[in-house]
């Protein structure tokens, strides 16, 4: 299987996001130290590492979600398509429209399924009319593999769905704004194995259109869904490379220790 991945890997080469020397402080806590990463287009990149290692922190830097935390301070340079996203002239609102996010716990809004998905297109003005909006909702739900389950009850509240359905709804909601990058912060940690399998399958399909970054604490999951893997430990990016390479032949002893279960 790893061999298969190695052949696939050859097609994706352009860097979508480049990060250089990224540091994050929460108050006095130095949460992320000097991280350099290139995230490739149309690829699933997994961030792994023990809890508190800074993988989620780095993820939240990529769409400037850390701006909503008053004590957070981000330094260094992160560029998307060559544009510095921390340039003071950049509007984080526009950035987040291009870099969608799915969270650890499914967080559907207390609105109907339809309104949940239509929320992003509505605020960004992506649809010119009701028909077009319906179209966006339908394609997004289809992309999230949820359409068949909910097409008859689009006006039912999103909070009434099962956990796995809720998370796929959140993915549909993120996909609806047509982002270029999709960030997923442990999207399966609150789900049962069946729902997890559905979401993982979905992630693999999404790779065709988006560059997907997924944070996970499950190494098996990283191995299953990602083409490239970054291992974080205590705020440092320890190792970054092809998933097969990281799991079979890590260069750093810490990576090996984590993968073999000695730290974690």
């Amino acid at each position: 299987m790893n061999d298969m991945r190695l052949t696939e890997r050859a097609v994706t080469q352009t860097a979508k996001i480049t990060a250089r020397g990224v540091q994050v402080h929460y108050g006095t806590n130095h949460a992320l130290k000097d991280v350099d990463v290139d995230i490739l287009d149309k690829t699933v990149t997994a961030f792994i590492g023990p809890s508190g290692c800074g993988k989620s922190t780095f993820l939240r830097c990529l769409n400037r979600m850390n701006d909503t935390v008053a004590s957070a301070r981000v330094t260094g340079k992160i560029e998307m398509d060559g544009q510095d996203i921390y340039d003071p002239r950049v509007d984080p609102v526009q950035l987040r429209a291009k870099v969608g996010m799915v969270f650890q716990k499914p967080n559907p809004f207390p609105k109907s399924i339809y309104d949940n998905v239509a929320y992003g297109p509505k605020i960004h003005g992506l649809a010119r009319g009701k028909a077009e909006l319906d179209q966006i909702v339908e394609t997004s739900l289809k992309k999230a593999a949820l359409w068949n389950e909910v097409k008859d009850r689009l006006s039912a509240p999103g909070t009434g769905l099962s956990g796995g359905q809720q998370q796929r709804l959140c993915i549909a909601r993120a996909v609806a704004t047509s982002p270029e990058v999709l960030l997923m912060d442990e999207p399966c940690s609150a789900l049962d194995p069946i729902a997890t399998a559905q979401v993982e399958e979905l992630i693999d399909e999404l790779r065709a259109q988006f560059s997907v970054v997924i944070v996970t604490h499950s190494m098996q999951q990283a191995a299953r869904v990602s083409q490239r893997t970054a291992f974080f430990h205590l705020g440092h990016l320890v190792e970054y490379g092809e998933t097969g390479h990281i799991f079979t032949n890590p260069t750093d002893p810490r990576t090996e220790a984590y993968i073999t279960g000695r730290i974690g």
Partner: peptide, 9 residues
């Protein structure tokens, strides 16, 4: 967070 993540003000 969900709303900010979608780019809402």
């Amino acid at each position: 967070d969900g709303s900010y993540g979608l780019g809402a003000t």
